[in-house]
Amino acid sequence: MDHATVLALYDRDMRENARPEGPGARVERAGAVVRHVSGGQGWNAVLWSDLDAAGADRAIGEQIAYFTGLGRDFEWKLYGHDRPADLGARLTAAGFRAEPEETLMIGEAARLAVDTEPPEGISFVEATDPAGVELVVDVHEQAFGTDGSGLRHELLARIAADAGTAVAVVALAGAEPVGSARIELVPGTRFAGLWGGGIVEPWRGRGIYRALVAHRARVAAARGYRYLQVDALPTSRPILARLGFHALSTTTPYLYGA
């Protein structure tokens, strides 16, 4: 993989020319900034920017004014290769709070090690109705310790209006949900994104996470997507690297008002 070429393609297709996520959402370009504005309870964020030292503080202030004017908390999704180099420090000075850094990892779907199957006693089912969504939310809240109401709203909206662009998978031990994960299939691009891979604490270290990645990689390849993208936590980065993913950059969520 040519890292520089793939990273430039990712920036262009997934950030600068991003598509709205969910019904009612919109993507707007405001000068040298591209932002995502939800249609209700969804995600609000700055996705991409092309700033220099002279104009960065003004652009930051404009986005704060815009989102606070809407009454929305929002995220500035900063990547390690974004400019100016001190953009993170400027965001902090403007009142943003940095979340833990993640690693942007990308793999070619056809070249990943996708033959991994669920461990014995574990089955995978896709969440295609409200009952399935509740299983995903249950795992999310147990695995990450965060409220899943926003995820519930997003998945139910996708099922109702745009089911072909996302697949949510639940790992079951009998009838007990012990893991879940999602794949976002972005129309008109070569990228699919892996999100929300979480395993309930007592079930970690048994190969369920790895099998969920492989399952979603097969879904992406079957639908003609070339690349898989993950914002990887330190715990998942070694697993993804063994499957064939490459670390191309870092990404840090800077939160305002949340």
Rank of each mutant, 00 (worst) to 15 (best):
V137G: 02
N17F: 13
L104F: 11
N17L: 14
A56N: 11
R223C: 10
V137F: 02
H81S: 15
L194N: 03
G148D: 11
S236Y: 03
V133H: 03
W76F: 14
Y227I: 03
R12S: 14
A53P: 00
G132R: 08
M1H: 07
S180D: 01
R12I: 00
E62W: 12
G107D: 10
G24M: 10
T128E: 14
L228A: 06
V139N: 04
N44P: 02
R216T: 03
L70F: 02
Y66C: 06
W203H: 15
F245G: 03
A98N: 05
I122C: 12
L255K: 10
L151D: 05
E184N: 08
L78R: 07
R83M: 11
L78W: 04
T68Y: 01
A25E: 12
A59F: 07
V139I: 05
D231K: 09
G198P: 04
E184Q: 11
G148H: 08
Y254P: 04
T235P: 00
I183V: 14
T5H: 03
W203T: 07
H215K: 03
G198T: 02
L51R: 10
G148P: 08
F245L: 06
D162T: 07
R58F: 05
R72S: 10
L243W: 02
D50V: 04
H140T: 04
Y225A: 08
A222E: 14
N44R: 00
E184I: 05
L248D: 13
G71M: 12
E120H: 03
G257W: 09
E21M: 02
S123I: 05
P100L: 09
F191C: 05
I122D: 12
P187Q: 07
T251D: 06
A85W: 05
A241W: 03
A8E: 15
G24I: 09
T189W: 09
G132W: 05
A143G: 05
A161D: 09
G95C: 06
A221V: 07
Y10F: 15
D82F: 15
G61C: 07
A161Q: 06
D50K: 10
E117M: 14
G145F: 09
I64Y: 04
E99A: 15
S49A: 15
W43S: 06
A4C: 00
D73L: 10
M1T: 07
S236H: 03
S49P: 08
L112G: 10
V46R: 06
W76L: 11
P202S: 01
Y227E: 03
A8Q: 14
T116F: 07
H81Q: 14
W76T: 09
L104Q: 12
D86T: 09
V230G: 01
A220L: 04
R190K: 02
A181W: 01
R58T: 15
P177V: 13
D13F: 00
A131Y: 02
V167L: 13
G188D: 04
A93E: 12
